[in-house]
Design a binder for these strands. Structure first.
Lengths: 207, 207
DNA sequence: GCCGTGGGTGAGCGGGCGCTTAGAGTGCCC
DNA sequence: GGGCACTCTAAGCGCCCGCTCACCCACGGC
């Protein structure tokens, strides 16, 4: 569990664990730049400039531009696994746990939209071994949600003909929030989380 | 309605309307390259090479690399609108029409995965006026689906507390298929289409 | 006061980028 | 057969990329 800070923009930054200060500033700048323009369209000069440093400073803290993406991606995925695992292991019925999992996962994708975009959509820019590491974390996400749904089916709370397919669809729905969510839009992360929790409960035939 | 061809890879190509031949070959090469590596990571030399031409040949048929993306994006979105409109205007109950819309839309995103990826995920690489044109087509997609759901609510077939939100979620679910669908995977486009049609009907409380 | 160390800078290297230009090959109308 | 329009190529321009290198400076130990 990491400490968190709040920026002027209002996003909570879970980058407290990244030290030293200059390395964290560079990483936050990279998240913003990657989210806005994409990894390949972002230059190292742009990242350094946003962090108020010269282009060369980046290479004191990170070996390559790809290492920056790798670090962002790993920290982000670890946070995602953490959110789902926490929801899966709370007390309560499968219905309550699934609603909590979807709600908190969606709130994260909406509230931390810049980070989530990088984490979910720039995976292909990583090299093979880094990508494999991240994919393992994704499989953990899938396993947590599938576990809740299986519990609900066994308890007779849910009616799900295709558990793996429904798990995939539920996660897909949550992840795609990072693509369309707009901070200037009319919905808050909490509202989207509540709506999506309800929709996923309908998908599994709860209630 | 455009003619369609079939490649060795098995994907149906709706690029019959693009002429002359060389321009179509370049466009198909660009779709493959953009889908694999992303717009910014794709070079004009790569596109020309896949089409069996020299880099300069590209500029006889297209003014810039961005014009290629714009053409791909517009044709793809027009096809998407066409699919949803056709489903929305068939005879039948709202339940049947929504199932057909989701099923055919998903089949397109799965079967034409390379095209769909470019169309759905490279929007930000377009300039402002091109992006505005594409966004107008997206709003048409949204309107077609929302129309079906509203019909179902009025007819008492559906139970939907938040029509715009549920429309957004249904489209989001379909679109995200392009991100995760794998031709080597265990599901066919038809199977995913059927699964998703069922899930969306559950979301709107049909049946 | 001197030095070592580690975070920082300005300048720039090698290379690949999007795109242009001059000219060659090809088919078609007269 | 000659002129022309169209398609395509070889060569390369100017630019900016990721990254490196030689050097600078603030600071803690003695």
């Amino acid at each position: 569990m990491s400490t968190a800070e709040e920026t002027a923009g209002g996003e909570v930054l879970p980058w407290g664990e990244v030290t030293p200060e200059a390395a964290r500033r560079l990483l936050v700048a990279a998240v913003e730049a990657f989210a806005e323009r994409g990894y390949h369209a972002t230059t190292t000069r742009d990242i350094a400039g946003r962090a108020g440093m010269s282009p060369a400073a980046l290479y004191i803290h990170y070996k390559t531009k790809e290492e920056l993406l790798h670090r962002i991606s790993r920290i982000g995925h670890e946070k995602a696994v953490d959110i789902l695992r926490t929801a899966a292991r709370t007390e309560g019925t499968a219905t309550e746990r699934l609603a909590e999992a979807v709600g908190s996962f969606v709130r994260w994708h909406a509230g931390m939209r810049t980070t989530a975009r990088v984490v979910q959509y720039e995976l292909d820019a990583l090299g093979p071994e880094a990508r494999a590491e991240i994919l393992a974390l994704r499989r953990q996400c899938d396993a947590e949600v599938r576990g809740i749904i299986e519990d609900g089916v066994e308890a007779g709370e849910f009616d799900v003909p295709d558990v793996p397919g429904t798990t995939l669809a539920a996660l897909s729905l949550c992840v795609d929030v990072a693509r369309w969510f707009n901070v200037q839009g009319s919905r808050t992360p909490d509202e989207v989380g509540a709506l999506y929790a309800d929709l996923v409960l309908r998908m599994v035939g709860a209630g």
